[in-house]
């Protein structure tokens, strides 16, 4: 682990830490607001999985695109989207990143390379293949990255997408955030293979399984896959083992059945705490600096909340706009 740590600069690690804190605080705030009865109707938290979007998206450059699924707030923040616009989108306000049309699941910012979050499991995969096809046909070294959970590896879109990407050797990275539950259903009840990366062998593409809670490990694994894609070596199925330490969805009617012992085990491996511990141990972060960073992030989220509250709702007639180009 020391080796990996040393390959990342202090600045980069602190940037990762800041983004992970921002994701965490965004989720916490959304949860608090929903509990307070604010008019936010759903959000899919990324708590416990923050290291994956941070470590993967850190390799992306202008002209690269990601296709996230409905659990997309981490990816949006990782790509540098504005949390004010994101918070306003939770409310369906006109200041939202999608002017209130998308909502929590479908946030998008094409100027940051973020396609709308896709609400259908596995639905991210074929469009990401298409983005990669365009990159290849235009003879660029751009890549596309799609994100999905372990549940998506059983749906047809996953298999059709991997098959095409391999057949045409496209620069796409399939990132499976294996949090071991498809909504409420444990992986062993839904998949015959434990390591979903195994499925790559049917399509003759590279596979890699790595821990998803250590951002340095994620960064390293993703870096290799993305470099391969840029060099024209085709796609990789990249699996990160992680765990969602919040409910599937912060929707008041959802109930959860994740065993408490399993949850407790994974909470000990919390990615934010893990990185904080490492930074402190390596003398890269003082307690004082940490407190200051946490306060800054909390303020940023409070500002976003204030912005969202003040932002007006769209005028009802706007419902008919933005359908056709």
């Amino acid at each position: 682990m020391k080796v990996v740590m040393s390959s990342l600069s202090r600045g980069k690690l602190l940037e990762f830490y800041r983004k992970m804190l921002l994701m965490r605080r965004f989720d916490e705030k959304a949860g608090e607001l929903i509990a307070d009865g604010e008019p936010i109707y759903e959000t899919h938290p990324v708590m416990g999985q923050e290291a994956v979007p941070v470590g993967v998206c850190a390799h992306l450059e202008r002209g690269d695109y990601i296709v996230p699924n409905y659990r997309n707030h981490g990816h949006c923040i990782a790509m540098g989207m504005n949390v004010k616009g994101m918070m306003a989108e939770l409310y369906g306000k006109s200041g939202g990143v999608c002017k209130g049309k998308g909502g929590p699941m479908h946030m998008a910012d094409m100027s940051k390379g973020v396609l709308p979050g896709i609400g259908i499991v596995g639905g991210t995969i074929p469009p990401a293949v298409g983005v990669a096809l365009a990159a290849k046909m235009k003879q660029t070294d751009r890549v596309s990255v799609c994100f999905f959970g372990d549940g998506a590896t059983s749906i047809g879109a996953f298999h059709e997408g991997l098959n095409l990407a391999s057949l045409w050797s496209l620069p796409v990275i399939f990132v499976c955030e294996n949090n071991q539950y498809a909504s409420r259903d444990p992986l062993e009840l839904t998949s015959p293979v434990k390591d979903v990366a195994t499925r790559a062998s049917a399509y003759a593409i590279r596979k890699r399984t790595a821990g998803g809670n250590d951002v340095s490990e994620v960064y390293k694994a993703a870096g290799e896959s993305i470099r391969d894609a840029r060099k024209g070596k085709g796609p990789t199925l990249l699996e990160f083992k992680t765990f969602l330490t919040a409910p599937h969805s912060l929707n008041p009617v959802m109930y959860e059945n994740v065993p408490k012992a399993e949850l407790a085990k994974w909470k000990k491996k919390d990615p934010v705490q893990l990185l904080r511990g490492r930074l402190v141990k390596a003398n890269l972060l003082t307690r004082q600096a940490d407190e200051q960073l946490i306060a800054e992030v909390a303020n940023q989220i409070e500002d976003a909340y204030t912005f969202a509250r003040k932002s007006p709702y769209p005028s009802p007639k706007e419902v008919l706009e933005d359908l056709y180009a």
């Binding site: 074929p126 990401a128 298409g130 235009k138 879109a157 059709e160 095409l164 057949l167 045409w168």
Partner: peptide
């Protein structure tokens, strides 16, 4: 481009390619 028999795969691939300018 001849595609495999995978309507959801290549239909969605076309969507992605169109989003970024093809």
């Amino acid at each position: 481009r001849t595609t495999p028999i995978s309507e959801n795969g290549f239909g969605g691939t076309a969507v992605g390619a169109a989003v970024v300018g093809l």
